[in-house]
Amino acid sequence: MKKYIIAITGASGSIYAVKLIEELLKNGYSIHLVVSDNGAKVLEYETGIKLLNFIEDMKEKYGNITLEDVDNLFSSVASGSFKTDGMIILPCSMSSLGEIAHGVSKNLIGRAADVCIKEKRPLVIVPRETPLSSIHLKNMLILSESGVTILPAMPGFYHKPENLEDVINFVVGKILDTLSIENNLFKKWGN
């Protein structure tokens, strides 16, 4: 069974993570979820979803989800010997992005990302900030040059979204496409 690490930081856009987690779980993938303290606060503020209730709901429906302690650097996902199929940081704050770009592992999110980079495993970072400063762009360039996929939460509109769910599905579908995971969340160009 393929397994992914998903991290939620304190940036806006945690609804994307909710949709990604549901999609991966319902398709039989295993998830190790790492959520920063601010990530949990933003999730509840923006969506009304309490993290622990969401985890329990996902466990009941699908199983295969483990909530990791963001401060536990002894977690299995902190080690390169623990094989995963990649990591998605969604949404990724500019603070977390900057730390990862410069090899700072203050918590399990940074350490797991560092492991993916050093082990050459897929790492998809979905930054959610606008406008971007030169510092943000330089940090993204550092990560891109290290093999990280930078996938900003920038929905397209060629598929003619009719509601907010269509916009969310577009971004999550792009993330899944990047990981070579088949999905029908949005109409692909030319289809």
Rank of each mutant, 00 (worst) to 15 (best):
D166H: 03
S81G: 09
D69C: 15
G147L: 01
K138W: 07
E22A: 05
K118Q: 08
V172Q: 01
R111K: 15
L33Q: 01
P161Q: 06
D114T: 10
G10K: 08
I181N: 06
K106M: 13
L179C: 02
H136S: 04
S133C: 08
L73M: 11
S105C: 13
S105K: 14
I125L: 10
S30L: 09
N72Q: 11
Y16F: 15
N169L: 02
D114W: 09
N107R: 14
Y16W: 07
V104P: 15
E99G: 14
L141V: 13
H32D: 11
D166G: 01
L43N: 09
K174A: 00
E60C: 15
E165I: 03
V18A: 02
N53S: 13
P155R: 06
N163Y: 11
A78T: 08
V126Q: 07
S105E: 13
M87L: 15
L185I: 07
A113T: 04
P122R: 06
A7L: 05
L97T: 07
N184S: 12
I135D: 08
S146G: 02
T149R: 02
A101P: 07
I65E: 03
D37W: 06
K138Y: 11
L97G: 09
A7V: 11
S81H: 11
L132G: 03
E44V: 03
N107D: 12
K188W: 03
G39Q: 03
V70F: 13
S133W: 04
F74Y: 12
N139A: 05
S36R: 01
V34K: 01
S14N: 15
H32P: 05
I117A: 05
S12Q: 04
I125E: 06
K120L: 11
H136K: 06
E145Y: 03
S95M: 15
A101I: 13
L24E: 00
L20E: 00
K41G: 08
T66I: 10
V35Q: 00
S81R: 10
Y158A: 03
G80C: 14
L137F: 06
H159Y: 06
I89S: 09
I175N: 02
L43E: 08
E129I: 00
P152G: 04
V172T: 01
L52I: 14
S134N: 14
P161C: 05
S76I: 08
V35C: 01
E129W: 03
S146E: 06
G39Y: 06
I150M: 07
D85W: 06
V77Y: 00
G80I: 06
L185C: 04
H136E: 07
P131D: 05
E99P: 05
A153P: 00
L132Y: 14
K59P: 05
Y16A: 01
A40R: 10
E68F: 09
L33S: 03
H159N: 13
K187M: 04
E99I: 12
G103M: 12
M154Y: 12
V70P: 05
I55F: 09
P131R: 04
